[in-house]
Amino acid sequence: MRIAVLVKEVPATDKVKMDEKTGTMIRSGMESELNPLDMYAVEEAVRIKEKFENVHVVAISMGPPQAVNSLKEAISMGCDDGYLMSDKNFAGSDTLATAYALSAAIQKLGNFDLIFTGERATDGETGQVGPSVATQLGIPVVTYVSKIEKISDEFVRVCRSIEGGKETVEVELPALLSVVKEINEPRIPNLAGKIASKSKKVPLLTANDIEVILDKVGLSGSPTRVVKVFYPKLSRDGKIIKVRDLESAVNELVEFMKQKGVI
């Protein structure tokens, strides 16, 4: 069985600091990391590899050259190989173009039975790449997967975590699964894993290597355009009261809620 895991490198969001006065993000010295939600995808793929024989797990990322670090991290967690798609032609891709390029790489690397993605990347936060990759490959997608119940040669049975409860579905392979945090607890890479990832070569794939139509990637292949970016002022300057007497503090809160139409 061959499994692909799609991983994205994102700004290390816990390091994102806001300028209190201007409400802007302080970007200097921003580090990047493997998208935290993609660790669950990597972990699930590696668990399948550990449970069954002859499973090969390949991590794929599209991004700038330094994204090799995220692939190395995926390898240190147990992926067999990593491929980095990096090419200036990919720059500015929206989700449709990103998914097109990823699907071209998946086809080039060939014959995957299962593809994993995270629920969403913590920077773009659309969650659209997984369903779009699957659709462009012509294979089914199951989103919000919180448990894999059964894997056979022909299908998987999974639980989806959706509004109001859990849905169980079966889907034919090959299929793409986008997983949520509930699915597992990602491992911390051990020393052997770290050593393995150091020596592992991560091949680079260019637009040419994966035979994409250049008009369908990058800015020219992206139907969406960002016309404006602004930094919301998060601070609300609300009224903050100290409790002196419980009753009157609560009364004031209830008055506020009435005024706002909550009660």
């Binding site: 998914a99 659309t126 969650g127 659209q128 369903p131 779009s132 659709t135 139907p223």
Partner: peptide, 19 residues
């Protein structure tokens, strides 16, 4: 919506803005 819209956008080859 987050499942069906990206599938549909991919089929139609059009843009989709999230959330």
């Amino acid at each position: 919506g987050r499942t069906i819209m990206p599938m549909l956008a991919a089929k139609l080859g059009t843009g989709l803005t999230a959330d």
